[in-house]
Amino acid sequence: MSTFAKRWNRSVLSLHSSYTDAFYQPNLNTRISSRKISSQNISLEDFLKESYIPSPSTHAIESLYYLEILAKTTRNFPFTIEMKDLDSFLLLYTKKGRYRLTYDNKQYVIGDNSFIFLDCSNYLKLDLLEQNWDFEILFLNGQQINYYYQLFLENGIPYCNCIPSDDSITTLHKLFSYEENNSITVELIRSSLLTSLLTNIILTKHVDCNQSSYVPNHIKQMMTILQTRYTEKHTLDSLSEELNYNKYKLAKDFKRYVHKSPIDYLIDRRMEVAKQLLLTTNKTVNEIAESIGIANTPHFIHLFKNHTTLTPLQYREKKSHYEDLI
């Protein structure tokens, strides 16, 4: 077992998973075949039993940024990992999915197209909130990496949002092209890519923070329409006509400033209203679906379950049971 795997084993407090995955490790030319593990507490030895994790050269440890593990993974609900005291840094890009991060005594709900950058010597916990979670994960290290981490964490928030065409994602994907032997050339290339990746996510986050106080008027108007008129049918064409704005630019700007698409924003709003109606009224699921603008009840149930991992009735029963206990 590699040095990193031993350190990771000592650091993982719990790992509860129902998943299929395909691991990529540096220096491994073939992709590990997908496998399924039923929902259970599993050891890290089981989790990594088919994996190959390289040992970086002394040169890389002393002078470069280096990978300790690199993987593309899909998780299915339920999935939880809890760990601390690992001398490594975690960089995780979520392509699609929603999960809860517990870190530094705070909790964050994080979704599509986002990066988290964490110091794994601190306690951290990741809990999947939806049915599927597609993400790419790196454990990385290096003599000066804490400097980048401190820059990233400058505002106290350990994550940032991005768009699929962002340079950060392009750079991340390039890392998967270098799964060769640990030659000095490959280690230098990886270190250069990691430097670019860390720089890009820091710049993305700083730009995002600087723009957060400024939202264009047409986006504010669109947010108001979707927030207050969520029972209506909205399309990009209808919104474009109402706001007198190019629909492609409208969609792009909305994603840039709100960090989700207009349809996802509308669905989130409808689901929040649905949750309130489930808890405060005796309306049937059909009635609630109609009252939030969704005529197809099975579609509403599907959306609700994707949003909460529960059906509407399960959500109502679970919340009612919890309130009875307190």
Rank of each mutant, 00 (worst) to 15 (best):
S121I: 11
D104H: 12
I69L: 10
V109H: 05
I110A: 01
M83W: 13
N105S: 15
V109D: 07
S114K: 05
T73P: 01
R98I: 11
R98L: 09
T73Y: 08
I81Q: 07
K72G: 01
L70D: 00
Y99H: 08
E82R: 07
L92C: 10
N113P: 10
Y93V: 08
T80D: 08
T94R: 03
R98C: 11
Y103G: 05
I110F: 01
D104W: 10
C120V: 13
Y103E: 00
F89Q: 00
Y93M: 07
L90H: 03
A71N: 04
R98P: 06
S121R: 15
D112E: 11
T102P: 02
D87K: 12
I69A: 00
I116G: 00
L101I: 14
L91I: 09
L91Y: 04
I110S: 00
G97A: 12
F117I: 13
F89W: 06
D104P: 08
K95V: 11
G111P: 05
R98A: 11
L101M: 14
P78Y: 08
E68K: 08
D104V: 15
I116W: 02
M83H: 15
M83Q: 08
D119S: 09
F117W: 07
N113V: 06
F79D: 03
P78T: 10
E82G: 02
K95G: 07
Y108Q: 06
N76A: 08
K84I: 04
T80Q: 12
F77K: 01
R98F: 11
G111C: 13
K72H: 05
P78K: 03
F115I: 12
L86Y: 13
L91S: 05
T80E: 08
E68Y: 07
F117E: 03
A71K: 11
T80V: 07
S88K: 06
N76M: 13
I81F: 10
Q107N: 09
L70H: 06
L118C: 06
L101T: 10
N76F: 12
G97W: 14
C120G: 03
K72M: 02
D87V: 13
K72A: 02
T73M: 05
S88M: 05
F89T: 14
L91N: 02
K106S: 05
L118Y: 03
F115Y: 15
T94W: 11
L90M: 14
V109L: 14
G97C: 09
